[in-house]
Write a protein that binds this DNA or RNA. Structure first.
Lengths: 210, 210
DNA sequence: ATCCACTTCACATGAATATGTGATTTGCCT
DNA sequence: AGGCAAATCACATATTCATGTGAAGTGGAT
């Protein structure tokens, strides 16, 4: 039997979902509250449910803030966001905060039920549009590399040395070359990358722009 | 009518999926090939399908390599991975390469059909386990910040200056303070972060460890 | 009232870096 | 055979950095 809690300030929606889920054989939904604050209060005094459905727009603390606080105190509670918001920021903030799923509010009651089951099976329920946004996040175009910045392998070696925080001397030692050679390489690297300090090379490298 | 192509080397699976999809009223699946190479050859000579189902383990080029090449030449083709692999690397490599969906091979034929429809509706079909892994990727614990490394806001300013590749002099100018003050801040920053060079500060900052 | 962290500035010194100019060797391309 | 990029080294110099020591004003905390 899966214990489910709801945090949702719209009474009609809240009651509808609660009644539907509580009606299911495999589920029990006894707690449906208005705000994160009330839910925290309830969790303090009662056994924690296994799953929380949570809105974002709430009186008092937002649902996203709520995730962090709840997950910190009760790491075993799985939280599914159920909201009308589909902008990337809210999605990512929720996921980073620890949400295990993200559904849009047009999701039908049977789909919500399935989502909870998916979650209990180790899956992550997401509305398809949400999944799309999440995927697009990976598809972000790689930072533009300067076309003329194709460093030779030796130059790459030097850059790696710089990123490792080595001085010219130590880089020279590492590759068993003269410090003047290191200097020469670095001059060429600066020219190719259009920079003029170690700092910029390191920054570019760590940003993947080399 | 959605045109679908398949790249899959297992003949039985390939034929099964092709026949099933081609049987659907809204779909047409005329092209089912063995390898990315063959598919590229086919795309050269024929109209491109709207959706490709693609395996990863293939003769010749892997499906993941294939995504990049196909998406580059034919950006409008949507690619759904259909594979037995569920390790994070293959998932992320696929998504980064440009896949629009990722299904595990135990997915039933009707579910594959639904996934294609989801894709055409602007969604991103993913098996629940895959979605879980993707979400866990966001949930990665933030890099450990040094407890004593709480920089003051002024110190943060200085760090930002360093990350931007500015010299002490330029940082001093930017904030309209003396270069000696910049030096003083930097000394304190080094102490707090336990480092002793600009390079390390920049590295830490870009890694989010500040 | 005292303490402490933050911010500001100054002076000093040795080490590291940025930049210029030049040269030699090797290997690839034509 | 000649040209050219890459890699190697040398010498020189002005700037920047890392580090030490010291100090003074402000504002919050005990």
């Amino acid at each position: 039997m899966i214990e489910i809690g709801i945090v949702e300030d719209n009474v009609k929606i809240r009651n509808l979902i609660q009644r539907y889920l509580d009606m299911q054989e495999s589920m029990s939904c006894k707690v449906a509250l208005d705000s994160v604050e009330e839910m925290l209060d309830h969790l303090d005094k009662n056994d924690a449910p296994g799953v929380l459905l949570m809105d974002i727009q709430l009186p008092g603390m937002s649902g996203i803030e709520g995730i962090g606080i709840i997950k910190k105190k009760y790491p075993n509670i799985e939280i599914i966001m159920l909201t009308i918001y589909h902008d990337s920021h809210k999605i990512f903030d929720s996921l980073v905060a620890g949400a295990s799923g993200y559904l849009l509010k047009h999701t039908s009651l049977p789909e919500i039920k399935e989502s909870i089951e998916t979650l209990m099976d180790g899956g992550a329920p997401m509305s398809p549009q949400i999944a799309r946004k999440v995927i697009q996040h990976f598809n972000k175009p790689a930072p533009q590399k300067n076309p003329e910045s194709n460093l030779t392998s030796r130059e790459q070696d030097i850059v790696n040395g710089l990123v490792d925080g080595l001085s010219y001397k130590l880089i020279a030692d590492r590759f068993d070359i003269s410090i003047d050679t290191v200097r020469a390489h670095i001059r060429n690297i600066y020219k190719k990358l259009h920079v003029n300090s170690k700092a910029e090379v390191i920054a570019k490298s760590l940003r993947g722009e080399i």
